[in-house]
């Protein structure tokens, strides 16, 4: 029974795809983002819009405000508008497979960026390799602390791909340094600065001798930096972040707070890659299953040039 249905869906999908492959032209791209309040997604959107603008392709953006159900509705609306390609950044921890299935059923190319739903891959998946870059960030701050001391981690939204991978990378750096002790870790819901602030404040209350903090996103790291300032520990605590948000890069460029290193994601590049991949898939060309625009380790020395032009 199950297999029959799956086979039916697959058959329908292939027929339709064959039909649309003949068309090949891309005039309208749909872009579904989880949350435009997060600078990371906003940068990707700007990247897609700028590059598509050069190629005079129309882009329709929908913002799910972090709600998976809203996103499924929005994708239905995108398909109704007759998009020729679909750039999909899943919202929430349960990266829903449904939008991919809906688009596939219409023969629309699906380009996944940043996250990918289990069991329903798109035509290509574009995302930085979080594990390696998180390792670099944690390795950098551990090096500054001369390989010893107490450490804290502020996680992102539990269960999301970036949360899991960034922890994996950082944990590797911690495990390589036996004198580093991971004393506390907490999860945030929204990756936001105010959460970073209150989580770090509680951590410092419980463990005033923390030397290192890794915030899994720049928002969390910036919030933690504020908490460290408030506690009067700016000279002793070292903080690492992730993402290379514009606000964080400006902070780093000044080079005067406890937050001193991040991994800058190539968000604009991701946007360009996504549009290029969409064009290729629509034209029937091959694209790699996985494309990895890696994040760049960014200290105060590198930050000013990224403030000028985001990679």
């Amino acid at each position: 029974m199950k297999t029959t249905m799956k086979a039916m869906v697959a058959a329908v999908a292939t027929t339709l795809m064959a039909g649309s492959a003949l068309a090949g032209d891309v005039n309208k791209i749909g872009l579904a983002v989880p949350n435009l309040q997060a600078d990371f997604f906003n940068q990707i959107k700007l990247g897609v819009e700028a590059y598509a603008g050069e190629k005079s392709i129309e882009v329709i953006v929908v913002d799910a405000k972090n709600d998976t159900a809203t996103q499924v509705n929005q994708v239905q609306d995108l398909i109704t508008q007759g998009i020729d390609a679909f750039i999909y950044i899943p919202a929430g921890a349960a990266a829903a497979a449904v939008p991919t299935r809906l688009a596939r059923a219409e023969g629309i190319p699906v380009i996944n960026v940043d996250r990918t739903p289990e069991g329903a891959p798109g035509d290509t998946f574009i995302a930085g390799e979080s594990v390696e870059s998180a390792y670099q960030v944690c390795n950098h701050i551990i090096g500054l602390a001369e390989g010893k001391g107490k450490m804290a981690i502020i996680h992102g939204q539990k269960g999301t791909t970036p949360e899991v991978d960034r922890f994996k990378g950082c944990k590797r750096a911690i495990d390589e340094n036996p004198d580093i002790e991971l004393v506390t870790q907490q999860w945030s819901q929204m990756w936001s600065p105010d959460e970073g602030f209150s989580i770090a404040q509680n951590m410092l209350q419980a463990h005033p001798d923390i030397k290192l903090i890794f915030g899994q996103a720049d928002g969390l790291a910036m919030g933690a930096a504020k908490a460290v300032d408030v506690a009067g520990l700016s000279d002793t605590v070292i903080i690492g972040g992730y993402d290379g948000d514009v606000a964080a890069l400006e902070y780093l460029a000044k080079c005067e707070g406890p937050f001193i290193v991040t991994a800058t994601q190539s968000t604009q590049l991701m946007g360009r890659l996504a549009v290029d991949s969409a064009l290729k898939v629509a034209a029937g060309e091959d694209v790699p299953e996985r494309q990895i625009p890696n994040a760049v380790l960014t200290t105060c020395a590198d930050a000013p040039k990224f403030v000028e032009k985001h990679p």
Binding site: N66, T68, V72, A93, A96
Partner: peptide, 15 residues
């Protein structure tokens, strides 16, 4: 019904 629509469940639904 939402679980059926999303084919997945997560505790942060419905905020």
């Amino acid at each position: 019904l939402l679980a059926a629509r999303l084919d997945a469940v997560q505790p942060s639904s419905g905020v």
